[in-house]
Design a protein around this nucleic acid. Structure first.
Length: 950
RNA sequence: GCCCAGGUGGUGGAAUUGGUAGACACGCAGGACUUAAAAUCCUGUGGCUGAAUAAGCCGUACGGGUUCGAUUCCCGUCCUAGGCACCA
């Protein structure tokens, strides 16, 4: 614990452990340690796969495992863990065989950056951080089966990450079968007929060869050709290069031209890289979303990222040339509005398309456009630039001549890298045409008089030949039919999704199990896995810019062939860890088919939405590949997924006058407009209920030792604001401190009580008093001042049963819809009501404790024992709701007049509408409101409401 | 710019299918117990008018609409957070 908190903490623990001995007083520190030790020694959370004869259904509750950072956990991290633990425990009470594991995503940049700075091996830093995390997690009382812990950086784990890489390498995507197949079946086709007729996901510039050609190739040539088809392949590609990190990054690791980790600038660079053929699965990744229970928001993020668009590809002939330009468009219906064609600056056709007179100008422009960094291009999206090539293409629909331009708004990587310019229907084309004075031809009815015709994008077509009068969908259909009949092109689906870069020029990652022979990559034997990360003297790149692994001494395959020097990215290990938990110690395979089939899909996956386009996409991809190859029986790994919100910090702010060392209490500052104030963040541990502990503040900030503090009514009030929990704002709250003061049960209850799981909400430590009070109240309801048990066997009264069953109903219903916050409040309501009745019924409290135990397992175990049980509460069946206890003989109806609640009336069940009306009208209050006016209508909804219209 | 989610007291939030808006909790105010404090318990607490624990008016971002009845459904506007962003 930080020293400044130490004092505060001592002060609190003193008051809490005052006059009573431990047996009498609710003392979370003691009983939580006791039960955590009990669970561990009795292995209460170790789970086994069950025999087929067992009737217990399985349930797999999973948390996104953490990257163990040096800072340790703050109270925001366990939010999702607590929720999934509540579900895991609830399912266990409900008779499920529950798998609830935890592990660590242990490869990653921070440990490596630290290694570069200090020379400390990242394995050591990582191991230390994992220890800290585990200690913190264990204090919260999770029901994790630690015997199944996985750590991605351990050779026994990454052996299988490498093995999966090998499966991807040895597979190709058969588009006829719509699935991955072993590469052997592709080689068989090549031997038979070459690659002419193969329908496979492959690289663009794959040469065409015959069976004879294939037979004549040597080993290295064959290896290079097969790379064009493998699901993981080595290719020259434009990648996101981050000079500060010395590594390439995947698209999801780059945000607005900066690296997501560290915020360093990222450049586009052409490099030879290991890639994953993610695009082969674009359609299935999209389609699979329809079969899983994820939030629509998250599915939308993935859908947008995959970016499917339906369109058409068609060829424009180039004048005085044999070339054809193929364009991709989603609006082929606007073809009659084409007034120019533009190609991307990266296009290899430019030199052939450029007229000699324009050559210099075009070369200059292309050079300039290529030199612009990704960041520059993104920064001024609105700047229009381009150059005329001096040549023309022919619009196949009209036979018209249209000029060909090069323009940097055209992306080489999307579609065909050629755009048909329709300035009357597309904003970018419009901007371009305006800037260069190209003609704009309106082709949609009602746009002729608009200053900017692109404001109206749909409507009846005009000036469009045989498409005139048609609407968008019909016109597209007719135009596509036309180009297909004429052989000009065809309907085409396009995806934004790109293949994922898989190599990283870093040390702290899984070595890629590949060596090079005659320049071609070859896989290691399965028997030589794992390929262990070699020791190196420094963790930096070599002087010549090679990745750190190039520093490894005599690290060669069979003593002669160089190993691959890049390592796998952070997402490799996390793309399959959920499978390893099922069979964590298997030495023979990554997961046995039997166990994978037993546990099947993850029933509940809890984690942050920030992984939407990274981890959650890559995991689905690997799972699909393993499914295709027959290792798994389910295509989608995560059946239900919940994104917990972020816990934000609640920062405390004080105000200091700029002209002097004078701090002024918040409200006085607000009233004072004459002076200018500086706003300062203060550590939230120095503030309680927005009141600053001035003496503690002076100790924390010695430079203000002699500053003046202007108090308001003897108190110094702070302002507050919600922002990200971060050391920088001094608003980080450590769960260890909260547990030391209130206990893990209170922490668990409070995190759930804060609000709906999916919401982001601020952490306000003062609110935890409420749940802490609730737990103490519960304790005192069961345990007397001498430590004696206060509850006894008795027949429960009608009222007690009603309270209990109301609670059972709410807890079950709310847990089934993952509404954790309302469950906590229903515990409070029930306890308040039982206490009002002075209930001391043993059965009622026993049932209450079982209902509570998923949220507050320690106190539930302790009181369960003190109520006379020798067995743990963990496997007690969850209470069953019985409607008979809630039955009422009537209902207290609210009576509203013209929709406003004015009175109420108790009516027996089964009362007729007529009788209800008569009785309601007889009410004095109703008579006063009627005031002689006629009743127009009476609405009677049984057990809901009576509404009188006058 | 586009897509998506949301906007309810001083604060976190509740109201599951359109049916008593503000449950539960924090905070605040007052009281009891105590030498005192802590802890505990009790009472009050959306705003306005009012002496009132009489009565009424207003009130779920704002403006309309549908309905006997709208926090909930529909249309428009504003704001906040997230995602995407020359994707043809």
């Amino acid at each position: 614990m930080q020293p400044r908190l130490q004092k505060l903490h001592e002060c609190f623990t003193q008051t809490h452990q005052s006059e009573y001995s431990k047996d009498m007083e609710y003392s979370p520190a003691d009983l939580e340690a006791k039960w955590q030790a009990y669970w561990q020694t009795h292995k209460k959370y170790e789970v086994r796969e069950l025999e087929e004869s067992s009737t217990k259904p399985k349930y797999y509750a999973l948390d996104m495992f953490p990257y163990p950072s040096g800072a340790g956990l703050h109270v925001g991290h366990p939010l999702g863990y607590i929720a999934s633990d509540v579900v895991a425990r609830y399912k266990r009470h409900s008779g499920y065989n529950v798998l609830h594991p935890m592990g660590f995503d242990a490869f990653g940049l921070p440990a490596e950056q630290y290694a570069i700075d200090t020379g400390q091996h990242p394995a050591i830093t990582t191991a230390q951080n994992i220890e800290t995390y585990k200690k913190q997690l264990k204090k919260i009382g999770f029901s994790y089966d630690w015997a199944r812990e996985v750590i991605t950086a351990e050779p026994s784990y990454y052996k299988w990450t490498q093995w999966i890489f090998m499966q991807l390498f040895q597979a190709w995507y058969n588009q006829d079968a719509q699935k991955a197949e072993p590469i052997a079946s592709l080689i068989a086709i090549f031997e038979q007929e070459g690659n002419k007729n193969v329908r496979a996901a492959h690289n663009e510039q794959t040469p065409v060869f015959s069976a004879q050609d294939w037979a004549s190739f040597d080993e290295a040539q064959k290896a290079m050709l097969l790379l064009n088809y493998r699901l993981t392949y080595l290719a020259e590609a434009v990648v996101n290069w981050c000079p500060a990190l010395g590594s390439v990054l995947a698209n999801d690791e780059v945000k607005d031209g900066f690296s997501e980790r560290g915020g360093h600038p990222v450049e586009r660079k052409k490099m030879k890289q290991w890639m994953m053929r993610l695009t082969a699965y674009a359609e299935r990744l999209l389609e699979g979303l329809n079969h899983i229970d994820w939030s629509d928001a998250l599915k939308d993020i993935q859908r947008n990222w995959i970016g499917k668009s339906l369109g058409a590809e068609l060829a424009f002939k180039v004048e005085h040339n044999n070339l054809e330009l193929t364009v991709f468009t989603t609006r082929i219906d606007t073809i009659f509005g084409v007034t120019f064609i533009s190609v991307a600056p990266e296009s290899e056709l430019i030199s052939q398309l450029t007229a000699p007179a324009q050559a210099q100008q075009v070369a200059d422009y292309v050079q300039k456009a290529k030199n612009r960094s990704e960041r520059e291009r993104q920064a001024d999206v609105k700047t229009v630039s381009g150059a005329f090539l001096g040549t023309y293409a022919i619009n196949p629909f009209t036979g018209e001549q249209v000029p060909i331009w090069v323009a940097d708004y055209v992306l080489s990587g999307y579609g065909t890298g050629v755009v048909m310019g329709v300035p009357a229907a597309d904003e970018r084309d419009h901007r371009f045409a305006k800037h260069f004075g190209l003609p704009i031809r309106c082709i949609i009815e009602g746009t002729e008089d608009l200053a900017n015709p692109t404001e109206k994008k749909t409507g009846c077509l005009i000036n469009s030949g045989f498409l005139n009068g048609l609407h968008q969908t019909e016109a597209i259909q007719k135009a596509v039919d036309f180009i297909q009949k004429k052989g000009l092109g065809q309907g085409k689906i396009n995806y934004k999704l790109r293949d994922a870069v898989f190599g990283r020029q870093r040390y702290w990652g899984e070595p890629i199990p590949v060596y090079y022979k005659n320049g071609a990559p070859f896989l290691l034997d399965e028997a030589s896995l794992p390929l262990v990360l070699p020791e190196i003297d420094q963790f930096k790149p070599t002087e010549s810019g090679e990745p750190p692994l190039a520093r490894a001494k005599s690290w060669e395959h069979q003593g002669q062939y160089a190993y691959e020097h890049t390592t796998m990215p952070g997402w490799a290990g996390s793309s399959w860890y959920f499978l390893r938990y099922m069979d964590a110690h298997n030495q023979n395979t990554f997961v046995s088919k039997k166990k994978a089939d037993y546990w099947g899909q993850v029933d509940l996956y809890m984690g942050g939405a920030e992984h939407a386009t990274g981890h959650l996409l890559y995991s689905r991809f690997w799972n699909l590949v393993l499914f295709d190859l027959g290792y798994l029986s389910h295509a989608e790994p995560f059946k239900k997924l919940i994104n917990q919100g972020m816990i934000q910090g609640r920062s405390s702010l004080v105000y200091k006058r700029r002209d002097a060392d004078i701090f002024v209490s918040y409200k006085l500052r607000q009233a004072d407009t004459a002076n200018d104030y500086q706003e300062l963040h203060v550590d939230v541990s120095l503030v309680s209920n927005d009141l600053l502990n001035v003496e503690a503040f002076k100790k924390w900030r010695p430079e203000y030792e002699s500053a003046e503090f202007v108090l308001d009514n003897g108190k110094f009030e702070c302002n507050w604001q919600v922002e990200k929990m971060s050391k920088r704002w001094y608003n980080v709250v450590n769960p260890d401190d909260v547990i030391a003061r209130y206990g893990a049960d209170a922490l668990r209850l409070y995190e759930m009580f804060l609000g709906p799981l999916e919401y982001s909400k601020p952490w306000d430590t003062s609110g935890i008093d409420g749940v802490s009070r609730f737990l103490r109240k519960l304790w005192r309801s069961c345990i007397g001042r001498e430590g004696e048990c206060l509850v006894a066997e008795a027949e429960a009264t009608e009222k007690e049963n009603k309270i209990l069953h109301t609670l059972i109903k709410r807890v079950r219903e709310d847990l089934d819809r993952f509404s954790f916050n309302t469950v906590v409040s229903s515990y409070m309501i029930a306890l308040n009501e039982l206490n009002a009745l002075e209930c001391k019924n043993k059965m009622v409290f026993e049932q209450f404790l079982i209902l509570l135990s998923p949220f507050a397992p320690h106190i539930a175990e302790e009181l369960w024992q003190r109520l006379g049980h020798s067995e743990s509460i963990l496997d007690e069946p969850f209470p069953i709701f019985e409607a008979k206890y809630l039955a009422e003989s009537g209902f207290e109806y609210p009576v509203s007049i013209n929709g406003k609640m004015r009175a109420s009336i108790w009516l027996a069940n089964g009362v007729s509408a007529e009788e209800a009306q008569i009785k309601t009208l007889a009410l004095e209050k109703v008579q006063a409101w009627l005031d002689g006016k006629a009743l127009k209508k009476c609405i009677f909804v049984p057990n809901k409401i009576i509404n009188l219209v006058i």
